[in-house]
Design a protein around this nucleic acid. Structure first.
Length: 881
DNA sequence: CAGCTCACG
DNA sequence: ACGTACGTGAGCTGC
């Protein structure tokens, strides 16, 4: 049975564009209309199973309708560029599906659809029209039905003759009369003013057509209506004409040219990959795999055996070799080496640990800094080799770091994610190959060597692709002169580890546990019952249901019991303060005492954190297992935990050096605001200075409240200010917060200009950059969703500041590493905490190091304001404050 | 495994 | 009108 589907291309694309968020793919191409269109298309093909398909598009702006009525579609907003640029992609998609699409000069899509529908009707072929435009209802007949999209894209109502009658009490042909009377503001069709759908329908039910209505003006109800119809009879006729779809357009094709024979997945898959339509891709590939599971591409891999390793020595002489080390855990400080693979792009070598150990040429190659290696995650690789007593040098490229610099916001930087994005796939994810969680399994030798061969081969393939992109984005220097060398510095920091006074930690734990026990009893007492204080749900029931405290804030799931809420409730009931203390102490025990104890290596009494160099969107590092960047400091009780961080050797000290107000100094530099620059040049207390300006008082009139509020305003500025955020932080009204912000911007107009310019530039470019060219893509800066757009705008303001500060301290770390080496000092860098570097140093060198650190950190970059560093030393991290 | 809470800069 | 401060990681609860 033949069946024809006619799709109103522009209408469906437009629907999709407004129904979906403004999606962008990795390259910044807008794709939401294409995505919605593709969803709709696949659904219609599945459900209607047509063997003839046509998609009609509007051509150009001027149509034959403009001859009669120049203002046709005159009041429409200009089509957004984000929409227009997607139309060619939709046509490309249709080509890939093997679906015909047409447009015709001076006609609209409707007219093409009408003409073909009429031809099919005449030949007795059933037709389904897909559109979002109810004008097309006029085409419905016994053979022609219409799918009209509802709110979304794929959701549609089906109209046949009966349904049109049910809905309007009209025959399909009368839809044009309806429009003749009521007009259509969106197409700028006038109709009769004052006649809406209700009146128009009433008149048509009585008279049947525009012409009949006009012939019976005297019989119309109401004086006003009579007048209006009489005065606008020409417009009514014109409007009906404009609404009439032309069904005899001269077309140079016919039904036979619209045959659709089903799609060829091989043509569609590359396009869907380019567009990054993962769900649709899975749907198509899923359909395919039912018939034939695509075998992973064959890969050659040679096992190197100890007996005949001599024959591979020429292989190692090549210029560039990709190297990958598989390990058995994510945490490379605890992991064992499973296998080593090498690739020159053509051949892959597989060696197990036994072979590597007994192959001197390999070890020589590995530690020769002139033999260049391409790697994924140099830091992990270096450490895993180190754990197995092998030195490795000569890493000239890191796939992980490169992918991160190219787009830090990208969801995954696993090797398979990068391969997916940059090579269009071809490497199954580890989770899939090994299984995850309980399903994790060990691979057989053959399977393992093939999987690893694929990995190392892809690493080799990726290198030139990423190198080129780094260059395009002007990221070479950041990559080669900063991040790649830094990875070695971080590796040594992690490898060295930090010594922990385990006894002291346990003693603190015991003390805190006793405090917690006391607090628990007291809370049960005050509550009159026992319950799980750690459960916000149970706690909420006690506080708000049982004790009747007022509910100030709710979360999605129930009452909020967060600290800011509890602080406000504290005066009302004794229990609240106890709960706050309980939370504090509980946090210290579970996260810091127990958490840290788990991470202390038995053999050395040290902790080896991991610094992640490819996680944050701003360029900062992060730290995990354990996180040593959030050790308590603000409250004395928690701060004592810093007593457990000690130098490795007796007679050594801890030295801490932190940048003073680095982010605000960076802001002063980037904005060039005179007041701010001058304040730092004079080394003023910046929060006091801000208070003076914002409150209009002299220095000695600034009280502690004013300074505290000014400090919050400064933070707000750095974060990308909003009155709401500031009001929350300061617990003041939004209006008051807004006034603070206004006065800040009046005092520092350069900052205001800078912020506005930065957001404007982000809109133009789609990204922002730091001083070192680090880039953050902000696709949502164009979002029509207020929240998403606002977030992107704040991010645009914050990232250059936070990111430049991150660039600077990374630069300082590199310089410090070189300086220590050059001076032959035994001091070692232990930790970085965003604006602070922590060292261990022999006591006798600590003064020398103090001076050196200050000089290097303050001189890491030259800004229009000085950088200032505070240094202090002590026997523990606690004392170095 | 998501949501809440809280530690840091 | 919309409802959030920017960037992280970890522990706990409860579905």
């Amino acid at each position: 049975m033949d069946k024809l589907v006619l799709i109103d291309g522009n209408s469906i694309a437009f629907r999709a564009f407004y129904a979906l968020p403004l999606l962008q793919n990795n390259k910044g191409t807008y794709t939401n209309a294409v995505y919605g269109f593709a969803m709709m298309l696949m659904k219609v093909l599945e459900e209607e199973k047509p063997n003839h398909v046509l998609v009609a598009f509007d051509a150009g702006k001027i149509t034959f309708r403009h001859r009669d009525y120049k203002e046709y579609k005159g009041k429409r907003d200009k089509t957004p560029g984000e929409f227009s640029e997607q139309i060619p992609l939709i046509k490309e998609l249709l080509d890939a599906f093997g679906i015909r699409h047409f447009e015709l000069e001076s006609f609209e899509a409707d007219d093409i659809i009408g003409t073909i529908a009429k031809e099919a009707d005449r030949k007795g072929m059933p037709v389904t029209i897909v559109t979002g435009d109810k004008d097309l209802l006029q085409l419905v007949t016994e053979k022609v039905e219409l799918l009209m999209t509802k709110k979304g894209v794929t959701d549609a109502d089906r109209y046949d003759v009966e349904k049109v009658n049910e809905k309007y009490g009209l025959k399909p042909k009368q839809i044009i009369d309806l429009k003749g009377l009521m007009g259509d503001p969106s197409d700028n069709i006038p109709g009769i003013p004052g006649v809406g759908e209700k009146t128009a329908l009433k008149l048509l039910h009585q008279f049947g057509s525009v012409e009949e209505v006009l012939a019976h003006i005297d019989d119309l109800p109401g004086k006003k209506l009579k007048e209006r119809v009489a005065e606008n009879r020409r417009d009514a006729i014109l409007s009906k004409d404009l609404a009439t779809i032309m069904c005899d357009v001269p077309l140079d094709f016919g039904l036979d040219d619209l045959i659709y024979q089903g799609f060829d997945a091989d043509r569609i898959i590359p396009l869907l990959k380019k567009l990054e339509f993962k769900t649709l891709l899975e749907r198509i590939q899923g359909d395919e795999s039912e018939t034939d599971q695509p075998e992973p591409e064959k890969i050659s891999v040679e096992r190197v055996e100890s007996e005949d390793n001599g024959k591979w020595e020429d292989f190692l002489k090549q210029d560039r070799i990709a190297l990958f080390v598989e390990r058995n855990h994510e945490n490379y400080h605890r992991a064992d080496l499973l296998a080593i693979v090498l690739s020159d792009g053509k051949q892959q070598l597989f060696l197990n640990w036994e072979t590597a150990k007994r192959w001197p040429a390999f070890q020589e190659w590995l530690q020769d800094s002139d033999r260049k290696k391409i790697c994924y995650d140099v830091k992990a690789t270096w450490i895993v080799f180190k754990r197995h007593h092998l030195e490795s040098e000569g890493f000239m490229f890191d796939i992980l770091l490169a992918s991160y610099l190219i787009n830090a916001s990208e969801s995954g930087h696993d090797l398979s994610d990068i391969v997916e994005r940059k090579l269009g796939g071809g490497l199954p994810a580890d989770d899939v190959v090994y299984g995850k969680g309980a399903k994790r399994r060990q691979l057989g030798e053959q399977e393992l060597s093939e999987h690893l061969a694929r990995k190392v081969n892809r690493i080799y393939q990726l290198c030139p692709v990423l190198e080129k992109e780094l260059k395009e984005y002007d990221l070479d220097a950041l990559f080669f002169d900063l991040e790649l060398p830094l990875t070695h510095v971080l590796a040594r920091m992690e490898w060295n580890g930090v010594k922990v006074d385990k006894d002291r930690l346990q003693a603190l734990g015991k003390e805190l546990q006793e405090r917690l026990n006391g607090l628990t009893e007291r809370i049960y007492d005050l509550a009159g019952t026992t319950f799980n204080i750690n459960s916000p749900k149970q706690l909420g029931e006690i506080l708000f249901d049982k004790l009747g405290l007022p509910v100030l804030k709710k979360t999605k799931t129930g009452y909020s019991t967060s600290a800011d809420v509890l602080e406000k409730l504290a005066p009302q009931h004794e229990i609240v303060e106890e709960i706050l203390r309980y939370r504090q102490v509980g946090k210290l025990i579970s996260t810091y005492v127990e958490g840290l104890l788990k991470e202390v290596f038995d053999s050395t009494g040290k902790i080896h954190t991991r610094f992640h160099q490819a996680i944050t969107t701003t360029g900062r590092l992060s730290s995990s297992d354990p996180n040593l960047q959030n050790i308590p400091v603000r409250l004395e009780e928690g701060r004592r935990l810093r007593q457990v961080f000690i130098p490795e050797k007796p007679g050594w000290q801890i030295l801490s050096a932190d940048y003073s107000q680095i982010e605000l100094r960076v802001l002063a530099h980037l904005s060039g605001d005179h007041g701010l620059v001058e304040a730092f040049q004079k080394d003023m207390d910046i929060h006091t200075k801000t208070a003076m300006d914002v409150f209009g008082v002299s220095e000695n009139e600034v009280n502690s409240l004013m300074r505290r509020q000014a400090k919050a305003v400064n933070f707000g500025i750095v974060y990308g200010i909003s009155d709401y955020g500031l009001s929350q932080n300061l617990n003041i009204s939004r209006k008051e917060a807004g006034e603070f912000i206004n006065r800040y911007f009046e005092s520092y107009p350069g900052v205001k200009v800078y912020m506005d310019e930065t957001v404007k530039k982000a809109r133009e470019d789609g990204y922002v950059t730091t001083m070192f060219h680090r880039r953050r893509h902000l696709p949502e800066i164009h979002s029509r969703n207020f929240n998403r757009r606002s977030f992107a705008e704040r991010t645009a303001m914050n990232t250059p500041i936070q990111g430049t500060a991150a660039d600077i301290i990374k630069q300082a770390m590199l310089r410090m590493d070189e300086a220590l080496e050059k001076r032959n000092m035994s001091a070692r860098l232990l930790l970085q905490v965003h604006d602070e570097l922590i060292f261990e140093v022999p006591k006798e060198d600590s003064e020398t190091l103090s001076d050196l650190v200050r000089e290097v950190m303050e001189g890491a970059v030259t800004l229009s304001v000085p950088l200032k560093v505070d240094v202090s030393t002590g026997n523990t991290w606690y004392e170095a404050k």
